[in-house]
Amino acid sequence: MLYDNYSRQMYSICLRYCHDKASAADALQEGFIKVYRYINTFKNTGNLYSWIKVIIVRSCLDQIKKEKANFSLDIDHLSIAEHNYELDLNFDDYTYKKILKILDTIPPGYKLVFSMHVLDEMSHTEIASILGITESTSRTQLYKARKLIKKNMLNYSIVHTNVVYD
């Protein structure tokens, strides 16, 4: 069954986007209701997992907006050359959970775009469509997110090292 096959992965995504388990469960529920209602529109040629994931992420964002009435992304419109968007981050020394902790330290807008693009493999077109921003803004956010993450990783390493050697 669809739910049995995908609910665990999707709930994991929901947990990443939402603030607590209750919100994540609500988002998952609303997301799967949409999945079942619109499953007829899914084209077999596509990737079902990706299709469901987009719906779930949208559902998570709806949930966040619902909980925070004044939710808005702090998005500035930096114009950066395309080649500057790619920053070489080295995650090799970090576990997935550590990365998530570092993600929590950056502004929500950056985190959101980074999660959607890097973790959930969404294109800037999709992100722009979901968040109601331009593709250019999405790219800018991603650039800033990477920059901040790199900086915070460095801080995390120092703190971590201090803890170890204290």
């Binding site: 665990r8 992965q9 999707m10 709930y11 990443r16 388990k21 469960a25 990365i99």
Partner: peptide, 14 residues
Amino acid sequence: KLTKAANQQMAEPP
């Protein structure tokens, strides 16, 4: 690698 790790994450929903 991070993407792959994210895709492998699973949690049992209520």
